[in-house]
Design a binder for these strands. Structure first.
Lengths: 191, 191, 191, 191
DNA sequence: GCCTAATCGAGACGGTACGTCGAGTCTTATT
DNA sequence: AATAAGACTCGACGTACCGTCTCGATTAGGC
């Protein structure tokens, strides 16, 4: 058992996951995690600095975006709407965790960096292909920076998250795609 | 001394302010505040429900937006840039507090509403006038929903705040105004 | 409630007493005491430095010798035997606590002093009167230092305690009184 | 390496000895011993039940009385004083260990027996010869139970140990021998 | 000018969670 | 087969805040 036992790690991460969704970040205690994982607190603290680090690890390992799968709907608008809906789901799924962590992240910059790296990353690809297809289809006049477009989408979702909270209805998706993303991408492609 | 002593209120709010900037929201304790304000914890809890409420009060009273004062620069682009810069400053100034609070807000919806009310409120006006002036000047082809525009601006700033953190350089302002706000407002006005 | 609440103190001391006799010093935890006294650990640590100090306090307040009351039996031998039996009882009653504490006392000299002060103190008187009566009755040729005599008795009991443990049978009392105390006091009085 | 390696045993006992004198029984941990002896905890627990057993073993092997060597001084008083001084030294040397162990011994009767066996054992002989010589010299009127005498001496030293602590000055030796042992042995021999 | 009542400081209280430590067990790789 | 290394469970430790509470002392305005 000389190296860290991966089985214990699993058990602890699993217990953490469960408790996160049952009681939330704030009301979840290390003792609870230990008890549920049939682990000792020492084992937890041997691997992670504290609760925030543990939860960030959970997020990174378990909550990673599954790629919103830019399904090809035939039109740019349809593709963007699909991606946007995926983004809403993802943010909605993680937001409790991330917001629960946020105050801690202020004083743990390194932790914040780690978490950020896992926040966009993969999703970005999901928007590049629809745009490229649209260019090929002549739906767009010229090439467009997909990264920038994705950033705007992300900003819209998080803003909604912060100032209104879930759920994200279809009217929010429609308004965002038709009122912001499409006008923008069109404007950019003709610039 | 029959009514609540307003002097104590001041002392408590001041102490809270100081501690917030010295140690941050999380590591600030009610005991610290009481000691620094030479007040008793009872006095604090008599006026506020708890730490979050107290801090929200501090934010509302002390941190309120000074109105980014959409100075008339003669062009829509200049006006929007001015507003956007003001928004950056405001968010930068408050973000620590707001993020510190955020996890609490998840379980205190009423508190969240109070805070939100103080988050945009006044700023919104600052963007309506530039837009109206631009319409008058024929810089814009038609009327535009200033609220929507302001929301986008806010979303961009908060997104930057969350995923990169301060400071917000001039290139961020330029990119946002030229790459997003101007194209959007133009597109909307011709729709 | 400004000063320390004496009722809580009682409850804590009582709980400590009970647990000491139920599980012994070593296996008694502060958490147990707190739970049984319906007190919080903080309250305990506010008054006492730690477990040893608490237990010493218990000993001092609750276990104090009730004065073995040298009942006047008419003869010096009878009186000494009575005192000696009382001493046996007292030591037997306290020995578990004291031995439980002893290792701690090594590194807490001040605590050790406090405890020692409560170990003989009162008992000493119990042996002075029998001796004085014996002198009056001409049973003893001259005056005798009662303190010294008591010390010998105490030494005998503790030695028995350490090297054999309880119980102390009547043959131990007889042997001690007839074989040691009486010969000694006789020798001293004729010196 | 099939059988238990005696070299490891030595290393462990040595490390235990060192630590006992450096930090005392209570603050010495098995991990420390293991680290210092470059041994593994498993190796320690394979040989000894636990810390108390290990320390008792150390005491038995390393701290055994070297026989206070009842040097023949020509007089019973001189011989007894010599033995008594030796006893003081021995007890002083071991007392930290024994007191450190004492609380554990309460719940480990077998261990207590083992330790007791090593506490008097040899010393007893040291007092028999002086007494026999004194009888031969006609210094004593009749035979005396040396064991009983030794017990009294031991009781005096331990009592002093417990209620005052070291060091044992010459006045303690003088008072004990002249005030207690000599009167007693005289009284016994004429009985 | 006094009295009654509200408010104050101080800080003890029951709780809950923290992060650390030591004991004793068990696993793996080495010798 | 016994070892060194060290991870493991368990449970106690002592600390820090939380939000509630009970004290006297202090200060108001109504008499």
């Amino acid at each position: 058992m000389a190296p860290f036992d991966p089985e214990r790690e699993r058990a602890i991460l699993d217990a953490t996951m469960e408790l996160l969704s049952e009681v939330g970040y704030d009301r979840m205690s290390i003792d609870q995690i230990a008890k549920r994982a049939k682990a000792s607190k020492a084992t937890i603290y041997r691997r992670w600095q504290g609760k925030p680090e543990l939860v960030v690890d959970v997020i990174c390992r378990r909550f990673d975006m599954d790629g919103p799968e830019g399904a090809d709907t035939g039109s740019l608008r349809g593709d963007l709407a699909a991606v946007f809906r995926g983004l809403c789901e993802t943010v909605e799924r993680k937001h409790t965790l991330i917001i629960g962590l946020s105050s801690t992240l202020l004083s743990h910059q390194e932790l914040a960096r780690t978490l950020r790296a896992h926040l966009h990353a993969r999703d970005f690809d999901a928007v590049r292909e629809p745009v490229e297809r649209a260019v090929k289809r002549r739906e767009l006049a010229g090439p467009v920076d997909a990264r920038r477009l994705f950033t705007i989408a992300e900003a819209l979702v998080w803003h909604r998250m912060i100032f209104a909270g879930p759920p994200f209805g279809p009217e929010f998706v429609a308004e965002s795609v038709d009122g912001v993303l499409m006008p923008l991408v069109t404007a950019w492609s003709t610039a």
